[in-house]
Simulated assay, not measured.
Amino acid sequence: MSYDDDEVRWEVMTAFVRLGLAQGEKVMLFPDPWLPEAEVLARLDFTGRSTVTARERGQLVLSSMRGLIRPDLRFTPERQIGRLHSETSRAADEGFTGLRAFIDMRWVPDLNADVRVMMHRETHADALFDGRPYSEICAYDRRWFGREVLHAMDRAHPRSLLDRLGTLQSVRGADGSVRFIGDADARARHAFTTALELALSGTCGVRRLTVDLTRLHLLSAGCAGALIGLADQAEDHDLVEIRCDHVQARTLHRLGAGAVRRLTTTEVVRPC
């Protein structure tokens, strides 16, 4: 993830931590090294003291990159990856279902590390995840890292998070398809409809469009209805295929998708 708003960082970090604790995982936090520990704990426990018990039993651990690579003083990918590998095994031995880590990349200027060495680590860390119960978020403050680094890291990671929780993103495929990610709720209806109109306009020549909804967390009735209406009006298309999960398919059919001859729904398993 990348951010230039501290509230975004807190939102994502808190959600990531609480999901991990709920799933019985051990969670390690490597926050911005310039943040006081008391502020991090206060943010995690906002509206209550929900993480106190997890900290007491060792399920939630606040650490730092300096602490992780100790006794080494200089960062090397091998040292960091080796320690995270060991921590994953340790979490399993302690009875947790896995390990997840939230790493704020502000440790790079804190350790005066070479950005190129850090980027090499980010693109050569597959062994941490292969066959192992480990997950990780790397959080880049856009106020500290250059555009080239951010672009390279966005391409290097298998998943990039949205800028904020509850937002909508549309991605066009090379074949003209459109994939929606996030929440297609009432607030996002205009953006959702606009993206569909552009996708339909761009695929007139091939007369077919694939709309992928499988990475949506929410599909409102309003957005679903707009999709059906646009498909019904798309006379220059022979087929509009909607890839969706079971709940989305049920919503679409209840709103009349079955009456649109050029529209078809394909149910698929939601990707992890």
Rank of each mutant, 00 (worst) to 15 (best):
T210Q: 06
A156K: 04
D141N: 13
I228P: 04
L216M: 05
E148D: 11
R250I: 05
L218G: 01
R83N: 09
D4H: 00
R49T: 12
V12Y: 11
T76M: 01
P33S: 05
L41V: 07
A257M: 02
L128Q: 02
W10F: 07
L44V: 08
T14R: 13
T194A: 13
G146K: 09
D236Q: 01
I103M: 10
T76G: 00
R215C: 07
R254W: 01
R9I: 14
M118C: 11
M13C: 06
L161R: 07
V117Q: 10
G82W: 05
R18T: 01
L73V: 02
C223A: 11
R66A: 06
I69W: 00
V17C: 14
L62Y: 08
A38D: 06
L128H: 01
T210W: 05
G222V: 14
V27Y: 08
R106Y: 07
C204W: 07
S63R: 13
R83G: 05
H237L: 06
F129C: 06
L162F: 08
L150R: 03
A15S: 15
S50T: 15
A15R: 11
A257P: 05
T266P: 02
F180V: 03
V260K: 09
D114E: 10
Y134A: 12
A199H: 00
H85W: 04
A125N: 14
V12A: 10
H253G: 12
D212E: 05
H253Q: 15
A92C: 15
R155Y: 03
V211R: 13
H253D: 09
M28L: 04
